[in-house]
């Protein structure tokens, strides 16, 4: 029995994609398999690990807990959409490089999207707030210390740009 397909329009990193998908296609799978945007990682597939976190209208959400068909009308940002068009890393990405915020890198896309949104909402987090910002994401390698440092470093880079820009 072949499964019926639905027309789905997904807006990802500013590009509109027209797809035909079964209703049960998870957003994480649509991004990875149908759009070949494999930066979004899938760890647990039930909302616990945070590796699949993407931004929907700027807010972090779990791509494994949404169906692609339900993402119509949302502006999605994946890790591929964080750097500038010329490849210049975003502040959060730059901070991860400087602070050794990753080892194997599996969890990293979810941290980068989560922190990007977190710093937009709260550009100067306290140490506690920086820890809280990443509480919903799991990392099996780093022990988190360098990721917390990267949150604080990214906030610092943002503050420097504010000063230079004004």
């Amino acid at each position: 029995m072949s499964e019926s397909l639905l027309d789905v329009r997904l807006s990802v990193n500013g590009v509109l994609h027209e797809l035909r998908l079964p209703a049960r296609r998870l957003l994480s799978d649509a991004l990875r398999h149908d759009l070949c945007l494999t930066g979004t990682h899938v760890g647990c597939e039930h909302g616990v690990c945070g590796a699949c976190t993407v931004l929907a209208d700027g807010r972090p959400v779990r791509a494994c807990l949404m169906f692609a068909v339900s993402a119509v009308g949302l502006e999605l940002t994946t890790v591929e959409g964080l750097a500038d068009d010329d490849g210049t890393l975003s502040n959060v990405q730059q901070a991860f490089v400087e602070c050794h915020g990753l080892q194997c890198g599996f969890c990293t896309p979810g941290f980068l999207t989560t922190i990007t949104a977190g710093l937009r909402e709260n550009p100067q987090p306290t140490h506690e707030e920086a820890r809280d910002m990443i509480a919903g994401n799991l990392c099996r390698c780093t022990g988190y210390q360098n990721i917390v440092k990267a949150v604080e470093r990214a906030a610092e880079l943002g503050a420097q740009q504010e000063v230079e820009g004004s």
Binding site: R24, L26, H46, L65, M66, F67, S70
Partner: peptide, 26 residues
């Protein structure tokens, strides 16, 4: 009914539930 999906989608993925229709109320 499908609302935010934060409880329902894990149940579906683990096949603890298999509704024939999802009515997305979003």
């Amino acid at each position: 009914v499908l609302a935010g999906g934060q409880s329902l989608v894990p149940l579906l993925s683990m096949r603890l539930a298999a509704p024939s229709t999802l009515v997305d109320i979003n």
